[in-house]
């Protein structure tokens, strides 16, 4: 069952990557990264149990924390001038 759950998480990660690549807006990509990060936490915890080395949980905790910091950083800098172009305008250029 552990392996099944691991595979399921891997599938979800692939789906998140697809969303990250096709976009379409920047926020979808950030969302994909965020989701990918939380799934990484789960995957690492699961892998730790699959391989019988629960020290992996330390890494999972680090991920949970770092993910938050990254998203907050993105939020903060999305307020700054570099982001001021409206999201719709960017559409044709992307993808």
């Amino acid at each position: 069952m552990l392996i099944g759950a691991t595979l399921a998480i891997l599938v979800v990660m692939i789906l998140a990557i697809i969303r990250g690549i096709i976009g379409p807006t920047l926020y979808d990509r950030i969302l994909a990264v965020n989701m990918f990060g939380t799934k990484t936490v789960l995957l690492i915890a699961l892998l730790g149990f699959v391989m019988g080395r629960p020290e992996f949980l330390d890494i999972a905790i680090v991920y949970a924390l770092i993910n938050f910091i990254t998203v907050v950083g993105v939020l903060r800098y999305s307020d700054s001038f570099a982001f001021k172009q409206p999201a719709e305008k960017k559409q044709p250029e992307e993808s």
């Binding site: 926020y27 998203v71 907050v72 939020l75 409206p86």
Partner: peptide, 20 residues
């Protein structure tokens, strides 16, 4: 604890930057 906060931050940034 973290995820709702991050989601909120993200949604807020999106709506403030004009994503309808």
């Amino acid at each position: 604890f973290i995820n709702p906060t991050a989601s909120h931050a993200l949604a807020k940034a999106a709506i403030h930057n004009g994503l309808k």
